[in-house]
Amino acid sequence: MKIGLYFGTFNPMHIGHLIIANHMAEHSDLEQVWMVVTPHNPHKKKSTLLDDHHRLEMVHLATEGYDNIRPSDIEFKLPQPNYTVNTLVHLLEKYPMHDFSLIMGEDNLNSLHKWKNYEVLLQNHDIYVYPRINGAVANQELIANPRIHRIDAPVIEISSTFIRNNIKEGKNVQPLLPQKVWEYIDHNIFYKK
């Protein structure tokens, strides 16, 4: 089975994440999309993250009813901070029958050369890239790589940071979140402080 891995802190998961995941599942040759909740991204401040189990629960709530989009806590079991190349090795050992690909925005593709062992990623895995408004990619050699697949997905510019800041300011962000995620955040009084 061909599976696309969509990594993120999902702090919180919003409709933009869901739109991209669904588009990849419906408009590419990926059979499933796994939303891989990252416990700690080496490039982000850990202090801004909700507990891992809360973020995973929001992904569960957001993906209910989507047969080919699934939450994954695979990185919770790996040493931290973790890197994508290590996660892929672990997944291939655990699920040798699957073919794993990466899903990322153009902005991440532009910095792929800074990732740990990025050459190994490109040699062994396809990368499905969705457009971003500020996603100008300078490296034409990378774009020409047969492992890179640009997918004409909707351009979604909603950020979890924007949502958290607006909740803190008492603004209504309900339209930016799947209903059950909004209810979970509201019930638990997340991001208010």
Score class of each variant (00 low, 15 high):
V155I: 15
F190V: 02
D67V: 11
D52Q: 12
P81E: 12
T9H: 07
A25R: 02
Y66M: 15
L142V: 05
G8D: 06
E93Q: 14
I143D: 02
R164M: 09
D99Y: 06
I143T: 04
L176I: 06
K2Y: 03
H54V: 08
M24I: 00
E106Q: 15
T63N: 03
H60A: 06
K44R: 14
I167S: 04
W34D: 02
G65P: 08
E169W: 05
L121D: 09
Y118D: 05
F10K: 04
W115E: 05
P146V: 12
K44T: 05
K171G: 03
W34P: 01
K171T: 02
V155G: 00
N41P: 13
P175A: 10
N41Y: 09
I74L: 12
I143M: 11
I69G: 02
S28W: 00
Y130A: 00
K46C: 02
P81W: 13
G65N: 11
Y95K: 04
D29K: 01
V129H: 01
R150C: 08
H125D: 07
K171L: 13
K171W: 07
L61T: 04
T161K: 12
P146H: 12
L92R: 15
P131I: 06
M13N: 04
F76A: 09
H98E: 04
Q179Y: 13
E26Q: 13
P96E: 08
A62Y: 01
P178Y: 06
W182V: 01
P71A: 14
E57M: 06
G65T: 08
L18S: 07
H27Y: 03
N188T: 02
D152R: 05
Q140D: 00
Y191H: 08
G8T: 09
N82E: 08
L78G: 01
N165V: 09
L61I: 11
A144W: 03
S159G: 12
V33D: 00
I69N: 02
Y191E: 06
S111H: 14
A25E: 00
K44G: 03
D186T: 12
Q123R: 15
V85P: 05
Y191M: 08
E93R: 14
T87A: 10
E106N: 08
H60C: 13
D186N: 15
E26A: 08
D152T: 04
P81T: 12
V59R: 04
G16T: 06
M1V: 12
F10E: 01
I19H: 00
T48C: 08
H187T: 13
K192D: 02
P79L: 06
E64M: 14
M24W: 00
W115Y: 10
N117H: 14
L91V: 07
